[in-house]
Simulated scan of single mutants.
Amino acid sequence: MLDIPRDNEKSFAEGKILKSMTEGVGVVTFNNPEKRNAMSLDMWEGLGQALTELRDNPEVRVVILTGAGDKAFMSGADISQFEKNRHNAQASEEYSRRSDAQRALLANYPKPTIACIRGFCLGGGMQVAMLTDIRIAAANSQFGIPAAKLGIAYSYDGLKHLVSLVGPSWARLLLYTGMRIDSAEAERIGLVDRVVADGQVWNATFEIARTISGNAPLAIQAAKITIAQALKDPDQRDMKAIKAIGTACMDSEDFREGRRAFMEKRKPHFKGR
């Protein structure tokens, strides 16, 4: 089991989404282990609420997403809801509209995000993981997109992120076959960033988050903004946004604190301004 801090814990979606915060690190837990953390519409909306509250909390500097139990990060959408919510194109469009808003929130999140993955990470779970900035996986994790086995089309945004991480050939292989791959293969093709022993994945992820939390927030924001713009086509890049955050860093109290701490050979205390 993952030893997740429970400081200031709050629940959403009747307890199936949990939010907590400790040491500047926000944690969102998909808490539906009986269904391998499959996502219902209520859970999608609860995820949006949890992410919004952590986004708006100035004490939170980085957010980890993880799954309850040791079986899954997220096994995708709750298929038992398909007959009610996704039985045809019109119903599926409404489902997508409501869940897409939460994915867009994560895609444009202003703070660093990390997926701590253990067990199954499938379908919509892979899409959520790919929307985070960093993916840390336990050695026992499995990854796949079974859309072709369900007769559904994987979303454009999900495929765009998949292709950007693993390239078009691996994206085709994963989508056409619906195959699952293990953590070692996922790391080799660039789907995850680091693989850790099963019992150490939470501690390893939290240590990375704590390191990020201790660094200068404006500098991290500058890196996040610049990388996001670099991934766009040249004519779509917002160079003014890059210049603005660079200027904000150079004029910040944190930059002065960083210089003083370096000269005084001590750990800096950044305030994000």
Rank of each mutant, 00 (worst) to 15 (best):
F143S: 08
S141L: 08
D78E: 15
R98Q: 11
L131Q: 14
D133L: 11
I136F: 12
Q142N: 13
M126F: 05
A68G: 12
F143K: 05
L105W: 03
N88H: 12
S141A: 15
I117Q: 10
G125R: 09
A129S: 11
A129D: 05
G76I: 00
S92A: 12
Y95R: 01
S75W: 01
A129R: 01
S141E: 10
A147R: 00
K84F: 00
R103H: 14
A138I: 11
F120A: 15
S92F: 03
Q102G: 00
F120N: 09
V60T: 15
I64H: 09
S75D: 10
Y95E: 03
Q81T: 11
L105R: 13
L131M: 14
A138G: 15
A91E: 13
I117Y: 02
A129M: 03
I134W: 01
I79R: 09
P110H: 13
D56R: 14
I136S: 11
A138F: 15
A115E: 08
N108F: 11
T132F: 01
K111L: 15
Y109C: 05
E94F: 03
A68H: 10
I64K: 06
D70L: 07
A77W: 09
A72C: 13
G123I: 00
G76L: 00
T132C: 14
M126R: 04
F120T: 12
D78P: 02
R118Q: 13
P110M: 08
E83F: 02
S141K: 04
N88Q: 11
G144I: 01
G123K: 04
M74V: 13
G123T: 02
T132K: 09
P110L: 05
T66D: 03
A77V: 00
A68C: 11
F120S: 15
A129G: 10
A89S: 05
N140G: 07
Y109G: 03
A137Y: 06
S96M: 13
A147D: 12
I114G: 02
A115V: 10
Y109S: 02
S99D: 07
R135M: 14
R86I: 00
N57I: 05
G76A: 01
V62A: 07
Y109N: 04
I145G: 00
E94Y: 00
R98C: 08
P58Q: 09
P110W: 07
N140W: 01
S80V: 09
I136A: 08
K84S: 07
C121V: 05
E59S: 07
R55H: 06
K84Q: 08
F120C: 08
S80F: 05
G69P: 15
I114W: 01
R86S: 02
R135T: 14
T113N: 04
S80E: 05
I79L: 09
Q142H: 13
G123M: 02
N88A: 12
C121D: 13
N57P: 12
Y109A: 04
P146S: 02
L65V: 12
M130Q: 12
A147E: 06
Q81P: 00
D100H: 14
S92M: 06
L105G: 06
C121R: 06
E59Q: 11
L65Q: 07
A129W: 00
D70E: 15
Q81R: 06
I134D: 04
R55T: 06
